[in-house]
Structures are given as C-alpha cells and as structure tokens.
Design a protein around this nucleic acid. Structure first.
Lengths: 137, 137
DNA sequence: TAAATTTGCTTGCGTTTTGCAAGTACAAAC
DNA sequence: GTTTGTACTTGCAAAACGCAAGCAAATTTA
C-alpha cells in the first residue's frame, strides 16, 4: 500500500489511491484538530485503530507527502507527526465532510459550534485555520 | 458491509463508514458526471471494478440512502441508478477532492475547464449542478 | 544504577475482504 | 427458439485487516 498504484488517470481515483480508505482521513482529522500528534495519540482515538495498520498508514501518508515526522521537544523517544502544506490543503475537503455529516448525523455541540463558524464565512474559516496549521510546521 | 457499524460518534468517522473505501466515491463520481448509470456503465469505468464489489457497494449506498434504483425507460432488463438528495449533497465534497487533485496531479483538459468554472464562483457552480442533478431524480 | 515503564514500532496468525473467473436468471433481439 | 444483453451471484485464491504478543531504544522510578 505504501507505493500507491494508480488505478486510472482520474484525479478522484488518484486521490482515493492515497487516502481513500477507512483510516487515513481519521489520522488527518486528528492532526487538523490537534495540530500535531504522537503515535500514541493516534492510538488513543475513539475508533481504536490497530497499531500495525496505524504504522502502515502513517508510512503511506508520509511517502505521499501528506505528513512529516518531527523530533519531539521533550523526549527522543517520542515522534511528532504534522501535516505538510499538501496535507493542510485537505482542510476544505474535511470541512465539507463535516458539513455533509452535519445534515445527516448527530454532531457533538463542540463540532456544531465550529460548523456555525464555517457556515457564517467558509472562506475566512478555511483561511484562518490553514494559517494556524501552517504556522506549526 | 451493508449494515454499516459505527466505529465512533465522530461525524467524519460515520461518513467514512458509509462511503470511505476505494470504490464508493468512484460510483458517486460516475453518477455526478453522467447523472445516471446502469450496472454495465459502472463496470465500463476506467478503474475496472469487480462485479461482486460493485454489487456490494451499490447495495450499501442504496441502504444508506445515497442512491436509488429506477426503471429504465427503454428496457425492463436495465436498471438506472441515480443519486438521492443525500447523494447530491456530496457534490461540494467531490469538488474539493477535484480542487485538491488539481494542485497535486495532472488533470485532463476537460476536467481543468470544469475546475476553472468552479474556481470562478464555487457557490454558483455547486448551486447550478445540484439543481441539474436533482431535476433528474 | 538497576529495574520497571513508556514509546514507537514489528511479527505471527486467524479472520475478513478483495479480485478474478465462471455461472445463472430474466429480458430482448434475431 | 436460439442467441445476446443485462444484472447480478458463487467459488476460490490472494491480499488486507485486526488482535495479541514481542522488541529495542529512551526515560522514569526505586
């Protein structure tokens, strides 16, 4: 899975070849909400990803330039994962997933509050959040 | 896979539980570009989905209210698949995938031309396309 | 400073999903 | 009435997944 093979020349298909599985966008979600995560942080997420699958997905995302590994300021044993600019560019897509889910699922109050901001001025929200995420890398 | 089990209460995760695999969004893509497709049309797509996987995905999408089956006007042997309103609501998300892919992959001229329209006025494009798709259902 | 714990993985193995080929039932064409 | 088209289903091997255990290096604890 690391060396992604393109199934066609379609850009949608090419995109799905990289992050179109049940786990990758959840990793990216965690990074967008937390700005940075350790391996252990990902494991702690509600969906309970298996450790071997997590390792495999992190490698694929890194290989495809979506995330990068960084030294942790506090400890050599820890690794910080962060989104690259290419990864941060997935923010609009992630917001649209949230907006769609807002229509068809029950969201937490916190998530709803965020989406109110998004709905008020989508462009501005994306711009602000993008800058915040990039300032971190 | 038909009766989707939620891995958590996160709306992103809930969404991925329905269409977060390598094939579902390609089926939805075909329906958005063509407005309606037969089983055979899906099989003809460049990515060459296996027939049993196609049947399984169509059932999951139907069960979750993303698509519906319709009689074909020309023949009782054919089935027309169309997007529901819930499915059409995935259009903004699909456009964001295209816009992301536009930055990081090579697109066909036709797709690029469409994206120029989108970039000029995203809201207007989505509105027009949504109405066009809904008028069909 | 030696032992225990944390952290980021890898390995083994049984289960599930996928992909390919072939088969089937019904409708339509010849 | 036989062949072709359409929408699937079935069987089986290969790949991916999920769980538990293991491991090496770094860090904390006693």
């Amino acid at each position: 899975m690391v060396n992604v093979k393109k199934r066609s020349d379609c850009p949608i298909s090419n995109s799905l070849d990289i992050w179109g599985d049940k786990w990758s966008l959840l990793i990216i979600r965690d990074l967008m909400f937390a700005k940075q995560c350790t391996y252990g942080d990902f494991l702690k997420s509600d969906e309970k990803i298996a450790t071997n699958i997590l390792a495999s997905r992190l490698l694929t995302l890194e290989t495809n330039g979506i995330i990068t590994k960084h030294d942790h300021p506090d400890s050599k044993a820890k690794v910080l994962y962060k989104l690259t600019a290419k990864g941060v560019d997935l923010l609009p897509l992630m917001m649209e997933i949230n907006l769609w889910a807002d229509k068809y699922f029950t969201l937490t109050e916190e998530r709803k509050a965020m989406l109110e901001e998004v709905k008020k001025d989508k462009e501005a929200f994306i711009r602000t959040q993008t800058l915040a995420l990039l300032s971190n890398s």
